[in-house]
């Protein structure tokens, strides 16, 4: 898997924003990616030193629209902690 295939998008939300203060950045990642994959991909794309990766399998949520029942897609979220002094310019924020 290529790095760009692993990291799908940054998560921008109040919660993820708060985490940036402790040098942790959140991404949606390929569901099949493992922590070592993610570490390598982030280091490659953003040119930073990663010191920790936590992943979360986001469970599908039931949704219904009228008579049609369904679920949202399952996906994987990764929170990556960078070594002190490293930064990622998230959409110009911070």
């Amino acid at each position: 898997m290529e790095a760009r295939e692993i990291i799908i998008r940054p998560i921008i939300s109040e919660k993820s924003y708060r985490a940036i203060d402790t040098n942790r950045y959140s991404f949606e990642v390929n569901y099949r990616a493992t922590k070592p994959h993610i570490r390598a991909a982030v280091e490659e794309i953003f040119n930073v030193k990663v010191i920790g990766v936590q992943t979360i399998n986001v469970k599908p949520k039931p949704k219904r629209r009228g008579a049609h029942a369904g679920v949202t897609r399952r996906w994987k979220k990764a929170v990556v902690e960078l070594a002190p002094g490293n930064r990622i310019e998230f959409f110009g924020a911070t």
Binding site: I11, I12, S13, E14, S16, Y17, F91, G92, A93, T94
Partner: peptide, 15 residues
């Protein structure tokens, strides 16, 4: 999106 109304950082709003 991702922020409660009025809770988004000014830098993001500006952008």
């Amino acid at each position: 999106p991702g922020f409660r109304p009025g809770k988004a950082p000014t830098a993001m709003v500006r952008r």
